[in-house]
Design a protein around this nucleic acid. Sequence first.
RNA 1: GCGGGCGUGGCGGAAUUGGUAGACGCGCCAGACUUAAAAUCUGUUGGGAGUAAUCCCGUGCCGGUUCAAGUCCGGCCGCCCGCACCA
Length: 867
Amino acid sequence: MTRYNPRESEPKWRARWAESGVDTAGPATGGDRENYYVLEMFPYPSGRIHVGHSRNYAMGDVIARYKRSKGFNVLHPMGWDAFGLPAENAARDRGVHPGAWTHENIRVMRDQLKRLGLAIDWSREVATCDPDYYKHQQAIFVKLFKAGLVHRKKASVNWDPVDQTVLANEQVVDGRGWRSGAIVVTRELDQWFFKITDYADALLDGLDTLERWPDKVRVMQRNWIGRSRGAKVLFPFVEKDDEKRFGAPGIEVFTTRPDTLFGASFLALAPDHAIVKALAEDDPSIEAFADYCQRTGVSQEEIEKAPKRGFDLSVKVRHPFDPKWEIPVWSANFVLSSYGTGAIFGSPAGDQRDLDFARKYDLPVTPVVLPPGADADSHAIDDTAYTGDGTIYNSKFLNGLTSAEAIEAAIARLESLKLGEGATTYRLRDWLVSRQRYWGCPIPIIHCDSCGVVPVPEDQLPVTLPEDVTFDKPGNPLTRHESWKAVDCPECGQPARRETDTLDTFVCSSWYFLRFTSPWTTDTPFDPAEAAAWMPVDQYVGGVEHAILHLLYARFFTRALHDCGLIDMPGGEPFAGLFTQGMVTHETYRAADGRWLLPEEVESRSGKIVEIATGKPVTVGAVEKMSKSKKNVVDLDAFIEDFGADAARWFVLSDSPPERDVEYTDEGVEGVWRFIQRIWSLVDAHPGGAPGPDSVATDAEGDALELRRAAHKALHDVSAAIEGFRFNNAVARVHDLVNALRRLNTEPVDGPALAARSEALGLLARMISPFMPHLAEECWSRLGGSRLLVETPWPDADPALLQDDTVTIAVQVNGKRRDEIVLAKDAGKDAAEAAALATQGVVRALEGLTVRKVIVVPGRIVNIVAT
RNA sequence: GCGGGCGUGGCGGAAUUGGUAGACGCGCCAGACUUAAAAUCUGUUGGGAGUAAUCCCGUGCCGGUUCAAGUCCGGCCGCCCGCACCA
């Protein structure tokens, strides 16, 4: 009897797999196998992989290996999201070039991933910082530019003062930069944008087709896009002078409730609305008000608690439905310039914010919507607005209509008066893609004094990053690199300047899955035929933190590429199936002086957790997602050295459902180790001359037959669990089979019994192969498998063995379980009823009662109703 | 405030279509082996009553539908996540 030694086995089998080439995907076109594309969100090469990271890859790998053994041509690639700010920070702090730092991390992490035994087609590996990759990205940028999907404009943008760059709206979380955590400030800057708003409707409607996406993610995207239907309404100026002063006939507002127009009591403009800005130039008190609003905090609480504040601009407009009705124009701190037209009309009775504002500044409050069942004479609004639907009143020609009817009628009237129209607005803003950083894909644009903005001609791509840069000063080193910046204009040949901004790294990750389909192309970003055949990704696996950012950008990108003719993807959706996996968590440890401690730096001494180095007690903190910052990580290499890659893979997939977090504990790992050894000891104890692992023991009976049944049931359940993304369930069913193999280990083992055991052990090896491929291969080999297990098709469970000859069913009396009966599987209802009524437990329970009804659900239950 | 999800033993969780609640694992307890410990193996393990057979209670709370409810319906309570002055 030997112990299973992963240190010996795992490298051996990985070498065999590499020799065999099984992990290499075949071409998607012209093959006879069905294609299946499984992808995990590619990592940022930040340093090292810990056990927490491995869960994501383990899940994708189970799917990849399972689908491959089911006969699919599987594409399971890996690459590196290799541009990003941490590389520049490392350069600044340690004097190493960002490229060198990144490539070293890639080398380390690639080795780690390889040690996990992932069935990855490494021949397709890409790194986004490689000019062979970003060259195509620059070509795509130029194509999008020429198609009018890229534009440069001056806009109020989010500036991260720590990372010294602008950020997209999606990258500002709770008013702070998503990476730095610094409070973002607003700046007016000339920046590059992708016109993702052109696709707002398509992106919204497409969500309905994504049936294999979590609802949560679809809802988040829907909310982010934030489509609202309503109307734009023009309130004409009262004073003719104002038309000239502001260059417009009046003030345009957006509303979703044109039915409440007769409740209007004021207009409110955002503090940075053009009219407010114009007025502020001559009026310091308005300027002071706008400044005050700018300084209001950015956190949720601050916004929520900030009192409504307004400033009367002393401008008047007319009501669109009544030229005699004059309405005052205010500026208010709760109006956003970035939404709608940056101006609203206040209808206080139907909107809580408007009501708060009206009460504070003593503006009129006229109710115009009568709630169902309310009385028009007595209905009044005090401090709570009525925001629901109802019957319109106090509203002239809208009186008596429902809210929905009144919206239509009001829009029709506005249109006939040429003072407004039905309109749709979105919360989604264009995607700001320029970054004032070095370590990113250079934007292939040249600024020429006479020709303006000129894209770099395709035959001059890539625009590569210069190597000779320094990071000793803040800001973007490209802006200081005079020789790199200097270039002749491609159109007029005069001296011109390169764009020094680089692209947001999310641009890189918006099409990498397309590059994977054909990374060998040099003239095009990918082979259109291969890409079209592989896409969409059948199963995408990643963290929910990308629910909006990456997953929205990628959906935009595939549509834009389709519209530019680069790929044929009519549906536009890059990811047909999405799974958002839970994290691996671990206890946190903190020394008395506040230092976080690694799990390996602490130990338990007589029931107390102490720091090994000092012996001082340690505070055990919350169980949290493994993260470098809190040091509650277990290094993958150390784990593999101790327990092997299979143990890591099995552990992170056990116990918790894949979409939930799983807690790392030493006890749990020990359990996995024990289980691995248990499997091995079963296989190792199997006699050498026994039938092979793909034998079928047709003559088995008794315990041997029971074992076959257990094996085939396990196979059936494990297959279903993998298909249904219930890996924890698959793990439990494998445990069941191992328990059956241990329980039914009868001696001596004769012919049919031995064959049944061979069959069961063979099936065990196969069903663990997607999870613990090295152990499975070792078992398969030990059992006498004729070829590599990875080249062996997934077996089908024998349906005849999935059902027992007899079934045990419960018998209830009045819904309470009183006994159970054993019946032949094809026993009729009458037989079941008779057997049930005869059992001791039933007889006892029925004492003194009369049977009224007997319900028999064959194979399930018998329920006797008695009174 | 809006939206999504979740409440089951000491813990992670299972019960996929309404049909034996607690599979499987971890932990705990007991036993075997051992001078001893570790490792390994065997067994017990929702709560309560009882020598036992057995009985009662039990899936956040209250009510309903049903022969039968963790599962369906109505109303609460609690927790987690996302968004949030979006007109």
